[in-house]
Design a protein around this nucleic acid. Structure first.
Lengths: 353, 353
DNA sequence: ATGAAAGCGCTAACAC
DNA sequence: GTGTTAGCGCTTTCAT
């Protein structure tokens, strides 16, 4: 343990071979005699050498093997949403099998904070993945572009020169809405994802409906109105969390002119609405139907099973990983749009008479 | 965009300075005339140079600026637990302010899978953090040690030569138990975290009680018995998830000789027990009291607020980050054990008469 | 305040 | 099959 950490050169000289040969012994990429190889490996063990230093390898190869994943929000908030987590799980798994690691890069948190995490500016990454890349001001994407780091945007706006992976949420949302319409509902309210970073909360005044900055919110709301429905109310939430759905439900469902159904932009919001309905003494779905989006497994909603539009989260992660792979191979991946499926649960039923 | 990406040397020659001067212009670490500095920066913009290549810098400095975080389980499962997420949030935040990035390294998932993710073997990291490092076989820690990567173990066994950060969960668990005893409960069951990687589920036969592999489970169970309590039953779960708590609740609370209180090793488990109790028509806390551990915010349990032992999750992340900082500075951080606090909610009350 | 030079540890041409 | 050589892009003494 006395001196410096041994290098490949040390191992090579101990094994009495050249460094290039020693390199081959570890990488296996090239012809080498089994005996030589073994000699190198033995020398390595002898010296306590545990394999090539990744830093040297990375510089030489010009690749870090790292994919920076910019989460669309403060980590804590982002990861409270199973949607992010399950997506990330699919992404990390697939990237892992490609030999790539995931560097967590915090996204913009408070509007007050510096807009771009220092890691975006200076961390080593071969490719970046931007989750929830749907805002119109993209300081993060600008920095990445300046650095020349190829980027995959998830759920963002489809733009020239930007690789995107998304889901068919507009049609999915429309399908959920039509499901309610088919059940005879006429008074339907909508609980939406945030319109922008302002984190506003409450029923949206009509003029604000045309000022949606977040692409995903715009698309899902468009899906609702694609059906021809004119919602009785549109309620904006500051984040996709149960408590915000709960607040929305309390506000929307009190009073006699309440809607008979609520469509929500996410399952977490929808489950909050269900809890609020129960709390108000309303039966679900006899008095009020509730539909969500995401297809999450929500055991604590039992015995109810949420009617929801299921999106293939793990597949989405894998699709993004493959886009990353293409980018690394120098190819330009095409936009992928994954299908969604309406899954009818126990929280929607015929409109009350 | 024709040729290679520009390097610092290109910028230097365009600005008619030496590379070392150009380097100073970017790092700011050294004396440089403001005018020269500006000339370099202008040249950089001109050439589309976006700052020093991190790979070159890392090799030169011998540091990657990366902390590998080995999550204690498959990502998906791990991140379904707010405990991991909130800890990670604190960790990433504090490390970020130290200029360090977090590389996500999947931990052992299935016992069938290769025990150690390839990233552990070969990714660049200056320090590693092992979450839930409490198992007796540490293939991951062995590899890290062989590579000479200093490691912080969270919630693991305190051992010679291993830096650990933990919480005082043994006393916390004892305090929760004493709270129940003080309320007059005599028949108390325990719902525990996994004993080992076997993911067994159900009431534990007595002989298995001495075969707890996971340190955290051992400590928390010891906390319960430290009070002198002899639990009516000990129920082992395969993971800290609501559905497993639910299953435990259903099994423990059916029948007339049911316990009047259940102490759980986590809030997710406890909330599952509450749901099961409600489902069985039992009133909480009139018929059965339930206590948890972690101090999570569980909005969907409303109107109940879980009685729980709160642990400072963000602080734990920060404490680990500071241990990492010490390690990087060449110092040996001391073991930190953070305090926990019993917070009485609405789910515990006097034992039924 | 600036420049020259060395070298971090490795891999990949290329020659033998 | 093995060795020689040349960098990858940068930071950091050390001179000037």
């Amino acid at each position: 343990m006395s001196r410096q950490r041994p290098t490949l050169a040390d191992v090579a000289s101990a094994a009495k071979v050249s460094v290039s040969t020693a390199s081959l012994a570890f990488s296996g990429a090239g012809p080498i005699a089994a005996a030589t190889r073994q000699r190198v490996l033995d020398a390595a063990v002898e010296l306590g050498y545990s394999g090539p230093n990744p830093l040297g390898r990375q510089l030489r190869r010009g690749r870090s093997g790292i994919v920076g994943v910019v989460v669309g929000d403060a980590l804590k908030r982002s990861f409270r949403d199973p949607v992010s987590v399950q997506f990330l799980d699919g992404l990390v798994g697939t990237l892992g099998s490609l030999g790539l690691g995931v560097l967590l890069v915090p996204g913009p948190s408070d509007p007050s904070q510096p807009a771009v995490d220092p890691l975006v500016e200076s961390a080593a990454m071969d490719v970046a993945v931007v989750m929830w890349g749907g805002t119109s001001d993209h300081p993060v994407q600008d920095v990445l572009q300046r650095r020349g780091i190829p980027t995959v945007v998830v759920e963002g706006r489809r733009e020239e020169g930007v690789v995107t992976v998304g889901i068919d949420d507009r049609n999915g949302m429309a399908e959920a809405t039509r499901h309610l319409l088919a059940l005879g509902h006429e008074r339907i309210a909508v609980v939406t994802l945030p319109f922008d970073a302002s984190r506003r909360e409450g029923i949206v005044p009509p003029e604000r409906l045309s000022q949606i900055d977040w692409e995903i919110t715009r698309r899902r709301l468009a899906g609702v109105t694609d059906t021809g429905l004119r919602p009785t109310a549109v309620y904006e939430t500051p984040a996709s969390l149960v408590e915000h759905g709960h607040a929305a439900g309390l506000e929307l469902l009190r009073g006699d002119d309440r809607p008979t159904a609520v469509v929500c932009h996410s399952d977490l919001l929808a489950s909050g609405v269900v809890l609020a309905a129960r709390e108000l003494g309303l039966r679900v779905p006899q008095d009020v139907s509730v539909a969500g989006f995401d297809g999450l497994d929500l055991p604590w909603l039992a015995p109810d099973v949420l009617t929801s539009v299921a999106q293939p989260l793990a597949d989405k992660g894998a699709a993004v990983a493959h886009a990353v792979e293409d980018l690394l191979a120098g190819e330009t991946p095409v936009h992928r749009e994954l299908p969604v499926t309406l899954r009818v649960g126990t929280t929607t039923g015929p409109a009350p008479a």
